[in-house]
Design a protein around this nucleic acid. Structure first.
Lengths: 162, 162
DNA sequence: TTGTTCGTTTGAAAACTTTCAAATGTTAAG
DNA sequence: CTTAACATTTGAAAGTTTTCAAACGAACAA
């Protein structure tokens, strides 16, 4: 397997992984390409490599930038935008996930509250309150672990960033 | 807000959360309904409550059962299938997630290997190897934390299960 | 057996998403 | 100010997913 093929395979694997996680496969492809590229890539280079027209690449690149997985870099004397993966892209992706888990925690809190605040209680409401309490506790504990994990990772990685 | 509305809101919130995570919103609705129900629900009850025909409900219920988020219960003297959320549904959902993260770890391992095994090295391959090594280490550490989290949670929950 | 009550499968319709090509903005150089 | 080189937006076409109604098949009851 030569270099070209390795890159193709990586792009494919990422496309599939992203799709499995419910994102567009193009998103995975762009991420894979930028992770694998030592040099920042222009929109043209990206769409050329991925054989996609610039429209979708531009849109997905913007979304990825919003989610802080990639960033634009300015290259002196160049008018094009160049993109690269952010330095700690894995940590960043995880931080995004952790924040969506915090929403679940809030759901648990909110609905436990609601169930308990009803004037006339019954088996159904009581059951709901118990389940929502479980949900709340689950995501609270998860959040603690998430923070700890990210912290541990960033301490391990920090030397590399310097 | 009355009981009916609370349930509606919960179902909606789950539908949205599931959709954000890239699953079908019906999946979230069924999960929410079963979490909120003290009694197991039949397919008919589910499709009645959710105002959906039986076809999709049947299919999605099967998928949820495959992922072990819900289970069939046998009710003596009844011919219908009854479903309920599994006892530790949050833990189970997390275990599924953790296992998809383990796939990412394997990707990192695999592509690091590939990049290093190329006969003629260059900057691009070297860069790839470094990035894939980072990926591998990230998901290894994550896996450790995931295990720890689940274990901690299950110890806390076990008393409730008895 | 035969009829009834279920769950599942199927095929078509509707809704949604992805993609492209072309038009429109935007920025910087001349 | 004008032009050139870009990125972004838009609207239409293609592809995909979700949904339903109806047909099918399995299991049970009589």
């Amino acid at each position: 397997m030569d270099k070209q093929e390795i890159l193709q395979n990586l792009i494919n694997a990422y496309a599939e992984a992203y799709q499995n996680l419910g994102y567009s496969s193009l998103m995975g492809k762009i991420v894979a390409l930028l992770i694998a590229s030592p040099e920042p890539q222009s929109l043209d280079q990206i769409s050329e490599t991925l054989q996609m027209s610039k429209g979708p690449v531009s849109q997905i690149a913007r979304k990825l930038k919003e989610h802080q997985l990639i960033e634009k870099v300015w290259i002196p004397g160049e008018r094009k935008d160049y993109y690269r993966a952010v330095p700690d892209i894995f940590g960043r992706a995880f931080a995004n996930y952790a924040s969506s888990m915090r929403r679940n925690r809030r759901l648990g809190e909110q609905f436990e509250e609601l169930a308990l605040s009803q004037p006339q209680q019954d088996a159904q409401l009581e059951h709901l309150a118990v389940r929502m309490n479980e949900m709340k506790r689950f995501y609270e504990l998860m959040d603690e672990h998430n923070r700890l994990f990210l912290e541990t990772w960033q301490e391990k990685v920090k030397p590399e960033l310097a």
